[in-house]
Amino acid sequence: MTFAKAPAAETAAPTIEITGLNKWYGSLQVLHDINLTIAQGERLVICGPSGSGKSTLIRTINALEGFQNGQIKVAGITLNRDQQVVEDIRRKVGMVFQQFNLFPHLTVLENCALPLRLVRGLSAAEARDRAMHYLSKVRIPEQALKYPAQLSGGQQQRVAIARAVAMQPEVMLFDEPTSALDPEMVKEVLDVMVTLAEEGMTMAVVTHEMGFARQVADRVIFMDAGRIVEQGPPSTFFTAPKSERTKAFLQQVLH
């Protein structure tokens, strides 16, 4: 089982480059001077306590959230509020949500094929074939004609991953993809994500699944109160955390 590698430009430039990012909700500052680059092919895991700004951070990357100052570059394009720029960036960025957000009125196959037709301009037959291809990758081709409500949570999330990856983005963002799932379904989703990572997809994953982080991540980031408090490769991040807050957090999630 292999995922086709995203057709990324042959440059050394990082896929995502965030500099001096600040964001407020009213008077509440939720992102403090974030600097972060994600290299092409890098697998980044973001963790941190609830309300620390993890979702907000990754949602600014594809402009689902705005920000007040700082700069975000995705695949060389500087994000601004221009419709064309935002749409160009969204075509390079795939996203998977905690609540799956499948389209309930469309079958699994249509969920994957419709965006391919509307956004990538594929013909109905091409879109169908490509959608089936990616549904096979996430191991549910036999559910293609069902509606999302007829699937288990784990299956729904795998469809959501197939839908995003079928667009062949340059980077995939995951916002707590397994948090809404029952424990026995977490593994089937993580397995799909591991395969995706092994195929070389650039990924930024917000998750509390530390096993996944250990196995897959090149780098783990710990956020607290809107700041990146600590970062490093899993080997040092888990065994020798520097800050007290990281230690306290790891103690909670590892037990």
Binding site: R90, M95, F97, N101, P115, L118, V119, A164, M167
Partner: peptide, 15 residues
């Protein structure tokens, strides 16, 4: 979330 998912896939507002 429906709007966000569709927009994140790159779909146009009218679609």
């Amino acid at each position: 979330g429906q709007w966000e998912a569709a927009r994140a896939l790159g779909m146009r507002p009218t679609s």
